[in-house]
């Protein structure tokens, strides 16, 4: 049962890691809008065909 001395801390660390990852992403606002992103991902990032000539180059 000596394996437990490695497995237990490992399990605890994994658990703690995911809890903190979750807290971090929540604080970053990842879960603020749960509705729109699932649709947004369906749209591709292609730039529009005829960009506005008024736009400066670096804005593109």
């Amino acid at each position: 049962m000596e394996i437990m001395t490695i497995l237990l801390p490992l399990a605890l660390m994994l658990g703690a890691f995911f809890i903190f990852a979750f807290i971090w992403s929540t604080k970053k606002g990842q879960y603020d809008d749960l509705e729109t992103p699932r649709f947004r991902m369906l749209l591709d990032d292609k730039k529009i065909a005829k960009p506005n000539p008024n736009l400066k180059k670096e804005d593109k």
Partner: peptide, 9 residues
């Protein structure tokens, strides 16, 4: 709506 930055300066 989200394309707006591409055609409005």
């Amino acid at each position: 709506i989200e394309k707006l930055p591409e055609f409005v300066p």
